Amino acid sequence: MAKKNEFQEAKTPKGKNPKRWPSYFKEFFMLFLAIILGFFVENQREAYVERQSAKVLAQSMLEDLERDKKDLEEAILFLEDKEQKIAQFIEMLRSPKSTWDTLAIYQSMTKVFSTFPFLPTDGTYTQMKSSGTLRYFDQRLVNKMNAYDNQLKKTLFRDSLVERGEWELVPLAGTLLNFEVTGEMRFGKTPTKEMYLKIKDQDTLDLFINKIMVVRTMSGRSLQEYKAQLTLANQLISSLESR
Rank of each mutant, 00 (worst) to 15 (best):
R67L: 14
D71V: 05
L72H: 07
E73R: 07
E73D: 11
E73H: 06
E73L: 07
A75L: 00
L77N: 11
L77Q: 12
L77P: 03
F78V: 08
E80C: 03
E80T: 10
E80S: 13
D81I: 05
K85Q: 10
K85D: 03
Q88C: 05
I90P: 06
M92E: 12
L93A: 05
L93I: 04
R94Q: 15
R94T: 14
R94E: 15
R94W: 01
S95M: 04
S95L: 03
K97E: 15
S98F: 08
T99P: 01
T99Y: 09
T99F: 10
T99H: 08
W100D: 12
D101Y: 05
L103D: 14
L103I: 10
L103F: 15
Q107H: 11
S108P: 09
S108L: 07
M109S: 07
M109I: 10
T110Q: 14
T110K: 15
T110P: 02
S114N: 10
S114F: 02
T115K: 11
F118D: 03
L119N: 14
L119G: 09
D122A: 09
D122L: 05
T124C: 01
T126I: 13
T126N: 13
Q127M: 08
Q127P: 00
M128V: 03
K129C: 01
S130D: 12
T133M: 06
L134N: 04
Y136V: 03
Y136E: 08
D138T: 01
D138P: 01
Q139C: 00
V142P: 02
